[in-house]
Design a protein around this nucleic acid. Structure first.
Lengths: 318, 318
DNA sequence: GTAAATTGTGGAACGCGTTCCATGTCAAGT
DNA sequence: ACTTGACATGGAACGCGTTCCACAATTTAC
């Protein structure tokens, strides 16, 4: 059952049926009624794919994300979803698992008009390569694209990092451990952490107090454990998430050691419960802005400021 | 630039070009080479929408979910995403915000062939209504569809609830508070909680120790506060999530009151940190199964057993 | 050597909705 | 009475890839 069948059955042409379906002008009341009756009678529903083909757009936005387990992605997706819903767009989840080949596959799907636009919540592919696909549709990144003329909404982490590190400096902590989720060679966030550190302390972070690939509670726990095994005793941990900081804390608790100062990120529940100072990144807001850029096909860059939230860690812990 | 342009430019027909693109049989090496060269030269990429139209399927699965903020949904989506990715399907997020009209809109999109199938992670619409749309595509629910012949993957909560409540009974707790996320009139989970309660205690839960619409840390906090304001003093809280239990705990901490026994759900980080007994629902596994049902268009029902995980709450808390 | 099978290719038809252009009708305007 | 413009509708063309059928050219088989 297609639009031409309805046309025949109602005695009108497909054009008129289309006009009725889309509530266009210039259709007589009589035609409208007759056609609507037939549509109902034969339980006809227009094919969305054909419609998309004809209209040359899908109202679908592809969202590339490595996984959905981390609050960065979850919140981002939630923000994107909200905005897309409000504008009548739909979002298609494109899991990348941090694989560049997969990301390229998705860019090619944009090229093949499967999506109107694509949002990278994170990307392994170099921006140079991504940039080449701009001609095929609107592309938005959630990281600072630097010199590249690519649309982006992203968190401005540095000033909040500087705030946090200044706080550390002010309180005279000396052995500063930094737990990163990814290496500085691949992660802009890690780079920002380093540059902030250098701005505040005029020196690079100490290698022996550094750890990468730390992303979960468990990772935080093992990182702390490892430091102690290596006879390194940080007095403050600058971590990539409250959950991680909570993991670090757990190690000290389990070993009846005094809990060092912790700094988390992302204002997660764990940090709220344990009163860990944190850095709030407003990811949901970033998602919203990214989605808006995607929909309007604007090549703007919209930084969103993060903020250091101080909390007094409790002196006595369970 | 479309397939016919490539056909003309290469001196072959569109059929042959199509065969080259899809790596079909019966194409001479010469034709393959020539056509591939032209495709490359003109940077041609076949249109996915046209392809979908022609093939009569999109390889898209719509996933209806109220929001992406709760671990139930996040984990479910993650499981679905994994499975879809492995099978070459894509998932389209369909935010419902618990609104039946919106859900209906999505069912109609299934009817209009926008998706091959649709998964309801939760539904406000009565199953009767959903059932009617089965003819238009594969539909999968993540809740027990009871008598309806609808595909479903869902958690079997009752036996774990009975385990937890039996534990409560065994340890002689008397004032049992139940914090639910939604009302029994709409929520199957709430109903399961009630029926488990009745099976264990041979009586209904006490109304004055009951609270609904409790879904977050903050909600747990206020629920506990409210009980105390009403001079109700539960000695155990059976809650809908570890985060909620953590919120309850916080109220007692803040007021220097002895922390009652807590029982959480969903094995969240907060519960792990605070050693709150919990119920693990294996949502990711449910998501996987649901997605598989959707892809294979099977009308099976796959229950997944939950399990009560006991943990010794620490006596002294910070 | 001829029938049968294999390989290669063209092209129309199909999937299906939208839109533009042509044509026609009728009432308002002058 | 005649033009103009609003209203109404048909129908072809378009968006674009896939597939089936027909036909031709080779091979293989006996």
């Amino acid at each position: 059952m297609n639009i031409r069948d309805i046309a025949k059955l109602s005695g009108y042409s497909s054009g008129t049926v289309s006009r009725v379906i889309n509530n266009n002008d210039y259709v007589s009341e009589k035609a409208r009624k007759t056609i609507k009756k037939i549509i109902k009678e034969y339980d006809y529903a227009p094919n969305d794919v054909a419609r998309n083909l004809s209209n040359g757009k899908t109202c679908d936005i592809g969202v590339v994300l490595p996984h959905n387990k981390h609050p960065y992605y979850t919140q981002l997706v939630d923000g994107i979803m909200d905005e897309a819903f409000a504008s009548g767009y739909r979002i298609v989840l494109l899991p990348s698992k941090f694989d560049s080949k997969t990301e390229l596959k998705y860019l090619n799907r944009l090229r093949r008009k499967a999506y109107d636009s694509i949002i990278f919540t994170s990307h392994g592919l170099p921006l140079e390569k991504i940039y080449k696909y701009k001609q095929y549709g609107s592309i938005v990144c959630c990281q600072n694209p630097g010199e590249y003329d690519i649309a982006a909404a992203y968190t401005m982490r540095e000033s909040s990092y500087i705030d946090a590190l200044n706080w550390i400096k002010l309180h005279n902590f000396k052995k500063i451990s930094i737990l990163l989720s990814r290496d500085t060679t691949v992660s802009a966030t890690a780079q920002k952490t380093f540059s902030a550190y250098e701005k505040v302390f005029n020196t690079a972070p100490k290698n022996e107090l550094l750890n990468t690939n730390v992303t979960t509670f468990e990772d935080g726990y093992s990182a702390a454990k490892q430091f102690h095994a290596n006879h390194q005793y940080p007095d403050v941990y600058f971590t990539n998430g409250d959950d991680i900081a909570a993991g670090v804390r757990q190690f000290y608790l389990d070993n009846s050691l005094e809990i060092p100062q912790l700094i988390g990120q992302e204002n997660q529940l764990s940090g709220q419960i344990l009163n860990i100072p944190t850095i709030n990144h407003h990811f949901q807001q970033v998602g919203k802005l990214a989605c808006r850029l995607a929909i309007n096909n604007q090549t703007k860059q919209l930084p969103v400021e993060s903020e250091f939230i101080f909390r007094q860690q409790k002196a006595i812990e369970n």
